[in-house]
Design a protein around this nucleic acid. Structure first.
Lengths: 367, 367
DNA sequence: CTGAAAGCGCTTACAG
DNA sequence: CTGAAAGCGCTTACAG
């Protein structure tokens, strides 16, 4: 009566997956011998080994990770926690982690937390309940994080990416956010800008944003310039017209805006355009991250390019060492600060000599 | 001699993870009872249950998925295969899958194939070796795929995302790519465009690209217009200046370009800008996908917006039904075609009346 | 060089 | 309602 039947030629796929026992029977040896062959612990050319190899091939046997894992307390699986895939900068590190992990025979269990510190804890719980051997994390903040303390206490190996902890015992792969931000300010200053503002993602969701602000603030002060109050915007916001209008309508508006991420920079440029300004003629804009799409855009975004894929790869490398080391020797590896690159792009230019006045009538200066 | 010692206050974290046996001993019951309590099979208020619950809490016990998995042949883990995270359109579906999976207590093992059909097979092997309960895939092509045949043969439950197979027995969550592409052509035609070109990602890496071209071709013919030969570009290319120059330097160059993805559209707009053209004044451009960053850009990209996160969620929903069903009843679910939206944006306009001549001198028309 | 046996942490008929 | 026991697929001392 069933409307669709499989073609009669194809028999029911009741083929049960072969186990080590099936293989042993087929090869006429014990399961121990099969296990040794699979793990490379058997003599390479003995007749028994030959027969086992043949049986494995004929049966298409793959050892179950569950059985193995139960015995060895290892799953060859790591957990990866990131704020969001919506930002391609994280996509880059995920690809790096994933590629390195695959080469090493590890699986990657992925979770996104949507920049919500509350979700971080539950994501971690989920991953831990899947018996991951280690973790690679990008969290809201690395310093004084109860979450990380907890992980330390449990003795779970982990490595941070993007986070830049001040406590050096926490392993992290990142760039020098402070130095990079300083360099942005210096570039802008070199172009003649004195009033440089900063737009940043929410500090409570991103210690990187805060670090970049620190670098901005420091460089401004050193250069004898007055840092402007930071404009914090929520992550994921695509329309920043009102924020940009507000900052440009101030009495002494900035001539350049440093954004803590490329995504914010794109939104700022979009907002400026909508307000009738042209970038960089009327306003210089700099981002941070170096996501691919900003290289294709015209004008090409000026930004700090992070080696995201490499960051992911190196993070897995560190984690692998950690997982291989005895649990009481976590000092086997040290934090990694990777080089970044300031891509000059086309969104910065000299100080505008005059530009559309965005102040609303009632705010216009006397005269 | 070790330079850094843990503070003496904190004892060595030798705390061994509690097992079902530990809990049983603590509560003075058998492991069977603990198992029943954990799985909600014990009487809710019996004294034994109470004691077990207390012991679980005191010990911080979480059942090992390895032990459970060995018994039940389930890992509560699914595999997710996508071409690349570099394209945010996939990031969206990944987030959807991941969120739905987490809510259902499933872990998601992620792998990217870099649009390489060869990597698809090895990625699948890796995932299967991790004993995933099911798979969600975006592959190069769904029709006549040896990979999918193999999966069918093995009886592994899987659901496709983005792929739009013509064979209806393959479960997929996608949009109607052909219809959407037609709609783009109709929009352009309504604006007066007659010479509409198409730039597409490599057909061999993406059956979606081919389907969108099919829709384009069909709509052109129906409208009495002449379809131009498709310009295939490799995935991941950010500089399309030469390709765009070539197509616009042709004798009867297109006045509008339909791109099979947003990322390609962004690159095409960048190339046009570099060539001294203004979009949409000199050239109309339409994308496909609706990735977030194109909403922030000015001019805002005209594109087909796919509900990517929802696609991911629905895919997991289908897979969950499949995994719950008996292996011989795969007909429990049917393919899902989700609605898309044509976002008008700002990159399309009327046919240009005149624009910079991109033909090189030797190609200039006589006179 | 190879095998018999114990055991990793669970679940689940089977008794009682 | 609860427990004793078998067994899921492996690995690994321990003998031989």
């Amino acid at each position: 009566m069933s409307p669709v039947k499989p073609p009669p030629g194809r028999p029911a796929p009741a083929k049960t997956t072969p186990t080590i026992r099936t293989v042993a029977a087929r090869a006429g040896v014990s399961v121990a011998t099969v296990s040794r062959v699979v793990n490379g612990l058997a003599p390479a050319h003995s007749p028994a080994t030959q027969r086992v190899r043949a049986a494995i091939k004929e049966l298409g046997f793959t050892p179950s990770r569950l059985g193995r894992g139960l015995k060895t307390a290892r799953t060859s699986t790591i957990g990866l926690v990131i704020p969001s895939l919506g930002n391609p900068v994280f996509a880059g590190s995920v690809e790096g982690v994933q590629a390195a992990a695959r080469e090493a025979g590890y699986g990657v269990l992925l979770t996104a937390t949507n920049y919500d510190p509350g979700e971080e804890a539950s994501a971690l719980e989920t991953l831990l309940s899947h018996n991951v051997d280690g973790l690679i994390l990008t969290v809201a903040k690395a310093d004084g994080s109860a979450l990380l303390e907890d992980l330390d206490g449990r003795g779970v190996p982990y490595v941070l990416v993007f986070n830049q902890p001040s406590e050096s015992h926490r392993l992290a792969v990142t760039v020098d956010n402070v130095a990079a931000a300083r360099q942005v300010v210096e570039l802008l200053k070199g172009l003649g800008h004195r009033r440089i503002g900063m737009v940043a993602g929410s500090f409570t969701s991103s210690d990187r944003a805060r670090l970049r602000w620190l670098g901005y603030d420091d460089a401004m002060v050193r250069a004898g310039l007055k840092p402007a109050p930071v404009i914090e915007v929520p992550f994921g916001a695509t329309d920043l017209t009102e924020q940009v209008r507000a900052v440009l309508a101030a009495p002494e508006p900035p001539t350049a805006l440093f954004c803590s991420t490329d995504l914010i920079a794109v939104a700022v440029i979009g907002a400026a355009t909508r307000l009738g300004l042209e970038v960089p003629r009327d306003l210089s804009v700099v981002g941070f991250d170096g996501i691919a799409v900003t290289a294709a855009m015209r004008p090409q975004l000026t930004t700090i390019v992070q080696p995201t894929e490499r960051m992911g790869r190196e993070a897995f490398g560190l984690l692998a060492r950690l997982m291989a080391a005895a649990p009481d020797r976590p000092d086997i590896a040290t934090p990694v600060l990777l080089p970044y690159e300031l891509r000059r792009g086309e969104t910065v230019g000299p100080v505008p000599t005059g530009r559309p006045d965005l102040r609303s009538p009632q705010e216009a200066p006397p005269g």
